[in-house]
Design a protein around this nucleic acid. Structure first.
Lengths: 179, 179
DNA sequence: TTTAATGCAAAGTTTTTGCAAAGAA
DNA sequence: TTCTTTGCAAAAACTTTGCATTAAA
């Protein structure tokens, strides 16, 4: 790649930690507005989600939830995560392995993802200049953007660390972009 | 959006027409290498695909193919499009409505997509600066990119034209990013 | 002839829903 | 009590495959 057109803007700043207190308030407000009820299961699922590492699947969450209450069903986790997505507390992501993944939503910043197809590691990056170019493109086509997907698929160059991570995985998974 | 950081690079240049002759040669070579056979059905499906507008689904193709030969099965179109994808003649796309879409692949240029969630129109854009920034981000994280997805979802500002298009559609489809 | 491709139907995947029973408010 | 939520199982919505038959080479 040539550097000829490159700007001096910082590239790929890592995102900061989410404000869970604020998110809990957002959720309360949302549930009140919609007349949704607070249940044992929802409390457990939300707490588990807030405690989990980013990009967890429904199965990941269900496993952790069932370690505490084995009677919780898949559909409950599914519907709770859907509720969180609709309420703006979670983002639903799809990286091509067929399973939906969730991350904590943050209104105040936005990041996109870099995915290793060998070890499955998911790296978050932020690039304001790309966001700005997106807006310019949308304007050019007389378009208003509501959301976007920007995913870079590839491979870690540090193949030792990468293969070590891969070996550790229970399910290696196919993270190619076949979805 | 502020223009403060914007460069003067052209934004969102539309992609050019594909070189079908070259693609047919690529396909011939690929099929020879793999010992794949040329059949009536494959010929028909490939020609239909080359004649179709971009971003057609398997169902779109099947409908056109069956207008000529009603005996062709879904699986044959499915397997032929998979062959074209593997041979680098087609790209498989997913815009969140659950159905795979195909476009003619072009090694010499790359574009991404802008999708209207109201009328379903799909606009292609090219932005070399974004491509370059992607490479810089990958480099920063010691990563090699094999491919990427960059999709902007939103709405046409010209609501009259947009709603007219929507009304014309056989199946309005849900192009939100739920996939 | 030999081996690949087709068409049908069946099987997979993952998501989504219907419904009777349980539980918030 | 009333109306929402749960858990199960079944339905959806696509994609993918098995296999006997057909057809390239």
């Amino acid at each position: 790649m040539s550097d000829s057109q490159a700007t001096n803007a910082p590239v790929g700043e890592p995102p900061k930690a989410p404000d869970l207190d604020r998110l809990r308030k957002t959720l309360d407000t949302y549930m009140n507005e919609k007349g949704l009820r607070t249940t044992e299961q929802r409390r457990l699922i939300v707490n588990t989600f807030f405690d989990s590492e980013a990009h967890c699947t429904i199965d990941d969450l269900l496993e952790k939830v069932r370690a505490i209450d084995p009677r919780v069903g898949y559909a409950t986790v599914y519907r709770t995560m859907k509720m969180l997505s609709e309420g703006g507390i979670a983002n639903e992501l799809h990286f091509g392995d067929g399973a939906a993944r969730y991350e904590i939503a943050d209104d105040t910043s936005h990041h996109d993802h870099l995915i290793c197809e060998t070890c499955g590691i998911i790296i978050e990056f932020e690039e304001p200049l790309i966001e700005e170019l997106q807006e310019r493109i949308a304007a050019k086509f007389d378009f208003t953007i509501t959301h976007h997907r920007h995913e870079l698929y590839g491979r870690c160059k540090d193949t030792v660390a990468c293969h070590a991570r891969r070996a550790k995985q229970r399910t290696p998974g196919d993270l190619s972009n076949k979805e």
